[in-house]
Design a protein around this nucleic acid. Structure first.
Length: 183
DNA sequence: CTCCAGTCCA
DNA sequence: TGGACCGGAG
């Protein structure tokens, strides 16, 4: 939630501050005033809205986490999406990495990379693009996590808004072949 | 579509 | 110094 539209380096600072304040667990975070949480996560930006969202997520965790394991993935996703501040991408992050469910996380990086590779799916609605990747990889949790993580790394280092194709490991197979102009 | 917001870096 | 940052709600 802290990393929603926010650079990861700033998220790490916010997490460090929460940890230093002893507010990294759901119980501890909920025990503090919302204004204090907002102050602690200030480096991550959007701190007022994110403080509200973190509280909502912690309440969900305390109420639902115990029975989450027994729920099927579709039900668990609906439950997560009902939480204020958890949209499709955040829900799938939690499903894949926290609950180890076989889902693919679609993010801005995925759409940018797929678009540059000429895949028509890059514009598709969230669930369509997610389902397409899941169909290609199959219900393989490690593979789904690896692909998402590698897309993130690739797009942070090379496939940026202004492409840095020089050292890109995909240069040989990229349709753009280092045409580093525009997007 | 617009707002939310601090931080980094070319 | 302005764009960009692993989105989501109203």
């Amino acid at each position: 939630m802290l990393t929603q539209n926010t650079a990861w380096v700033n998220v790490e600072r916010a997490i460090d501050r929460l940890r230093a304040a002893g507010a990294l667990t759901a119980v501890e975070l909920l025990a503090r005033p919302e204004a204090e949480i907002a102050s602690l996560i200030r480096p991550a930006g959007y701190f007022n809205v994110k403080a509200v969202r973190l509280r909502a997520a912690c309440r969900w965790w305390l109420a639902e986490a115990a029975t989450a394991a027994s729920q099927d993935t579709a039900s668990l996703r609906r439950s997560l999406l009902a939480v204020h501040g958890i949209g499709p991408e955040t829900a799938d992050d939690i499903l894949l990495y926290a609950f180890e469910r076989p889902v693919f996380v679609v993010d801005a990086y995925t759409r940018r990379l797929f678009g540059r590779f000429g895949l028509p799916q890059h514009d598709a609605a969230y669930d369509l693009l997610r389902g397409w990747v899941e169909g290609v990889l199959g219900p393989d949790v490690p593979a789904l996590g690896q692909l998402h993580a590698r897309i993130v790394e690739l797009c942070k280092n090379h496939c940026r808004p202004r492409p840095r194709c020089g050292e890109c490991p995909l240069l040989a197979t990229c349709p753009r072949l280092g045409v580093a102009a525009g997007d």
